[in-house]
Write a protein that binds this DNA or RNA. Structure first.
Length: 420
DNA sequence: TCTGGGGTCCTAGGACCC
DNA sequence: TCTGGGGTCCTAGGACCC
């Protein structure tokens, strides 16, 4: 039986979440900013119409923002994550198989369902009714084509937000209209190379020789070509695969010049990364840390370095990672720079009980570690940062700038929206 | 002066083995 | 003057995604 995938994608997701609780902004242009209120990372429909670019640094578009009275919001991930969960819950109720692909997108497996188009319309209506979030739906025999169908649902309002691309003729008609860079898996670099070879539209890519594509580009792009021709190469992955790395990094609200402050920042990221690791129920053996100055100012001396260490055994104890971080930091720190960003990465993951233990680390210590971390996490689930390590410092001067943060409307009792 | 954060996969090349 | 062949594993870097 032919496969049928649907891609459901929330419209302007972050901006929509902000608007949801601010009916007064219903027709106002809205942008959501990255951490430190640095870049534009989401735009409402009105803002897109104004031509304000995704990823634009705020200071470069400040005039445009003032001129059009664009409402700015700092990223409120607590809100977006909760709204995302609500949307995904509806999808899981409506569809037999769901792959949550990102915070605002999911693939559905609708193979074997008659009247797929009607079902997609129903799902769209239900998400809107239950969450207030508008979605677009693209239907096709492969994931790559479903992405393309979803793109069409967005670009052509006449579609009403649902596009069924099951028919080959429709697929080809659409692909002829779509630039090659819009294809899922074709980024900026590939786009340039492909255009240099005379391939400009999605259809050009679909009609390219897969053997040539593999030889000249990669096996990944070859798969894309086949997918564009209706041959499904990418399965629905309804089980979230276990993570292979955990990264925690931040740009600072202000440049750091003090050594101890930089170390405290790293300690904080180590603690957060270890917490995430325990949430995943994983153990990690390699810790990497990095620090760097700003990268954009050409008049400034630049420095960037990283170092990593392999622990004697995989673990998930924050204390062990903190102890390992210190010498790494000492080895890469250089005084006299204005540091802009730092981060840590955990890799080399193991499942508990499937690894070689450290001969000199007794079982009872492991038990105590597990209990201690358990208590730590339990307390911090009541509110992040209730309990922390002294190494993290108590009065960070460098914390993130979030000047335009909206309330945690859906996840904090004290921030529930009030209706008068 | 001010430019985000967190992931995955693939490939090429080097080290090493027999 | 002439110096093999076949393989694995690891890492860094590059591409992509949201």
């Amino acid at each position: 039986m032919d496969k049928v995938f649907a891609l459901v994608d929330c419209n302007n997701f972050y901006a929509s979440c902000e608007k949801l609780f601010r009916p007064d902004l219903k027709h106002t242009p809205v942008v959501v900013l990255s951490n430190n209120d640095g870049c534009v990372v989401a735009r409402s429909r009105e803002v897109k119409a104004l031509g304000l670019k995704m990823g634009a640094p705020v200071f470069q578009v400040r005039d445009l923002i003032e001129q059009h009275n664009i409402a700015c919001f700092s990223s409120n991930y607590a809100l977006y994550a909760d709204m995302s969960n609500r949307v995904m819950t509806v999808l899981e109720q409506e569809a037999p198989q769901v792959e949550i692909y990102s915070i605002d997108e999911a693939f559905l497996d609708l193979t074997g369902i008659d009247a797929v188009y009607d079902m997609a319309c129903q799902i769209k209506a239900k998400v809107d009714q239950y969450t207030g979030i508008r979605v677009g739906v693209g239907i096709a025999p492969t994931k790559t084509l479903a992405k393309l169908a979803n793109h069409a649902a967005k670009v052509y309002p006449a579609t009403g937000g649902v596009v069924d691309l099951t028919e080959r003729e429709r697929q080809r008609r659409l692909m002829a209209l779509v630039e090659i860079g819009e294809v899922w898996g074709v980024g900026r670099r590939l786009s340039k190379h492909l255009q240099a070879r005379g391939l400009h539209t999605a259809l050009d890519l679909a009609d390219a020789d897969p053997k040539m594509i593999r030889r000249e580009f990669s096996v990944v792009l070859e798969r894309t070509v086949r997918e564009l021709n209706g041959i499904s190469c990418l399965e629905l992955e309804s089980m979230a695969p276990t993570k292979q790395q955990i990264v925690c990094s931040r740009s600072f609200g202000e440049r750091i010049t003090q050594k101890n402050e930089l170390k405290e920042a790293l300690a904080k990221y180590v603690a957060r990364a270890a917490e995430k690791l325990r949430q995943e129920a994983c153990l990690a053996q390699v810790l990497q840390v990095f620090i760097r100055t700003g990268v954009f100012n050409p008049n400034e001396r630049h420095y960037s370095n990283s170092a990593s260490v392999k622990l004697s055994a995989p673990c998930d104890d924050t204390r062990a990672f903190l102890a390992a971080m210190e010498p790494l930091f000492e080895s890469i720190y250089r005084p006299g720079f204005r540091y802009a960003k730092a981060g840590v990465m955990l890799t080399d993951f193991y499942q508990p009980n499937t690894y070689q233990t450290d001969l000199f680390y007794p079982e009872e210590d492991r038990e105590r570690s597990k209990n201690l971390m358990g208590v730590l996490d339990k307390i911090n689930r009541q509110g992040r940062g209730h309990l922390f390590f002294a190494a993290q410092g108590v009065t960070p001067q460098w914390s993130m700038k979030r000047e335009f943060l909206s309330p945690a409307y859906t996840t904090n009792w004290n921030s529930l929206p009030k209706v008068y």
